[in-house]
Design a protein around this nucleic acid. Structure first.
Lengths: 135, 135
DNA sequence: GTATTATGGATTTGGGAGGTCCACAATCAT
DNA sequence: ATGATTGTGGACCTCCCAAATCCATAATAC
């Protein structure tokens, strides 16, 4: 029941970038200012690019810009960019069908957790985090 | 953000035992009926014993009994018996102090998740699971 | 054409969840 | 008191994956 370091890194980067949402940030600067291993950050940024959360430009004067204003980036999107769709237990997956699936007493509980988590993440934006709104 | 297989195993065992809360269940039977590797189950049961959730007796006619009625066993206790105290992020630990701890914008969010999760677990008992109450 | 930047894939490493094994202790029946 | 049955407790193994590293390449600016 823990948040991954990778998600932490992604949020560190996004909150940094949201301090000046129109500027371009070079990977190297993000890495240094937020204490993230450069080459690992590269992989993380690609995921954010692919999800349409940030835009990238190559070459001198290149770097990353937020694709949307911080108030339009919610944590559920960031989570899914990094981890894929949230699944609290594996048996929710079609492939890994558990023997007891038919009458499993646990599923409603995990479902409830899942809804609650997803809800909080969906309602919280990068702006909320930075401005400490709704928290 | 996933529930461990070990916690799943613990809950499978407890829901089985709650079908007849006064009877004694042999480890071997729990293992077979709930599809849990016998020797691994041994480690899990010890944790439940140490937390005072089940009682054990050695020897012929030995086995495990619920220490309390299923309506008095909540999932937070079971979670903590298995995983220790819940920590959504590592920086909540005193030892692993993060560089940005002083002004970390993430902490309020993780705190909110933590409260929400803990709350649901605390309010849900083994009886609720079995009878599908409150769910 | 050269410097600067991101891209994308291959590869390594460490730690821990999940699982196994076994010698031992407690308890029961005969 | 002996043997069968059961849980105990620790040592140990194994495999997977998050985290990290490395590098050759592509894009863009001047």
């Amino acid at each position: 029941m823990q948040v991954s370091k990778t998600l932490d890194y992604a949020l560190r980067s996004l909150t940094l970038m949201s301090s000046s949402p129109v500027s371009t940030y070079r990977m190297k600067d993000i890495s240094e200012q937020r204490n993230i291993p450069l080459n690992y950050l590269a992989k993380i940024m690609r995921k954010l690019v692919n999800k349409g959360i940030v835009r990238s430009r190559v070459g001198p004067d290149g770097g990353y810009v937020l694709e949307k204003p911080p108030s339009d980036i919610n944590l559920k999107d960031v989570y899914e960019a990094i981890e894929g769709e949230m699944r609290v237990v594996d048996c929710m997956d079609k492939d890994a069908l558990c023997t007891f699936y038919e009458s499993c007493p646990q599923i409603p509980v995990w479902d409830k957790l899942h809804v609650s988590l997803t809800d909080i993440l969906k309602r919280t934006t990068i702006e909320d985090m930075v401005k400490q709104n709704h928290l």
